[in-house]
Simulated assay, not measured.
Amino acid sequence: MTTARTFESIVIIFNPNSTGDAPTLAEQLRTELGELLPYAAEIRLQPTAHAGHAVELARDAARTGRDVLVVSVSGDGGYNEVVNGVMQAANPHAVCAVLAAGNANDHSRIIATQPLERAIAAGAVRKIDLLRIIKGATADAPAEYAHSYIGFGLTPVMAIDLEKGSKGALKEMFSVMRTFSKFKPFEIRPTEGKRQKFDSLVFANIAEMAKYATLSEADNQISDGKFEVVIFPHRSKFQILLTALRAATQGLGHQPSVSSYAFTTLKPIPYQIDGEVKSVEAHTRVTIESAPAALATLG
């Protein structure tokens, strides 16, 4: 469902050192909005100064007023920071959007329905789900949000390696092989279960990763209050490779949908959240849950 909105303030956040020409795209967006908007709005460019700065800038911008739009001119990782900043602001009227720049733009590519500048001018705001990862079992356990996916193991590593690599099927295959040769499985203890060994465990809010890896055939998974769980139990390397290549070529087909998934780590485990690499300590309760209609967005 979309609603028409106007904005008193529009803050455009970008990395001035972006490889995707974010400064130029940000300036172009400001110019286009100045020409397209049928009302007066303060439109401000806000460059980042260091890693993680976009979280602070987005949080501060979302707290400035009721009708504020925060735009990230970035790839998926930069947008993840902006989304988390907006969520930290706890302003239910703030709106967040992304203009694709940089290497990975899966979120924008999958959910966009029209050019961003037109959507802003039309005020076409809609609500979408987010993923929330909680690390710990206490009420004050730290949490963060993902707009697209959270992954442990081979599949997210492979997807990011493909995105950083070259274009073309043959070079993509070499990227898969290179990652595959260095990969080791990991063990966790799912809720009310015995310890299990996995090659990959991905929680997906969109159906595709890194342009080529199709994780699921689910429809409308960005706003159904659920997410897909893509599981690769530990198997032989030959079977792992066949599954990974299938994800990069024809897709993995239907995957189960859930609203939450919990497990306990046995060792420190790295994970990827919208392409950014982070880690969780050993013996930590990890909960992945859907945050239904948590983000107001457009585009």
Score class of each variant (00 low, 15 high):
224 D>W: 02
242 L>Q: 07
207 A>E: 10
116 L>P: 08
20 G>E: 07
281 E>I: 13
29 L>F: 00
91 N>D: 06
87 M>C: 05
245 L>N: 04
26 A>I: 06
40 A>G: 14
233 P>I: 02
91 N>L: 05
187 E>L: 09
113 T>F: 15
293 A>Q: 14
193 G>H: 10
69 L>K: 01
148 S>F: 00
232 F>L: 15
232 F>I: 15
241 L>C: 08
281 E>R: 08
128 I>C: 07
21 D>H: 10
49 A>S: 15
145 Y>A: 11
200 S>G: 15
148 S>M: 10
227 F>S: 09
272 Q>E: 03
146 A>C: 14
211 K>R: 12
165 G>Q: 04
4 A>N: 08
281 E>W: 01
47 P>L: 10
41 A>D: 13
157 V>P: 00
64 T>V: 09
14 F>H: 04
67 D>M: 06
29 L>Q: 05
12 I>W: 00
186 F>M: 01
161 D>C: 11
256 P>F: 10
55 V>W: 12
182 K>I: 11
89 A>L: 07
74 S>G: 00
235 R>G: 13
19 T>D: 13
89 A>W: 02
40 A>E: 15
231 I>D: 15
280 V>H: 04
219 D>E: 12
30 R>H: 05
247 A>C: 03
73 V>C: 01
191 T>I: 09
45 L>E: 11
124 A>E: 15
202 V>D: 01
266 L>Q: 14
202 V>W: 04
162 L>F: 08
170 L>S: 00
166 S>I: 09
11 V>C: 02
112 A>M: 10
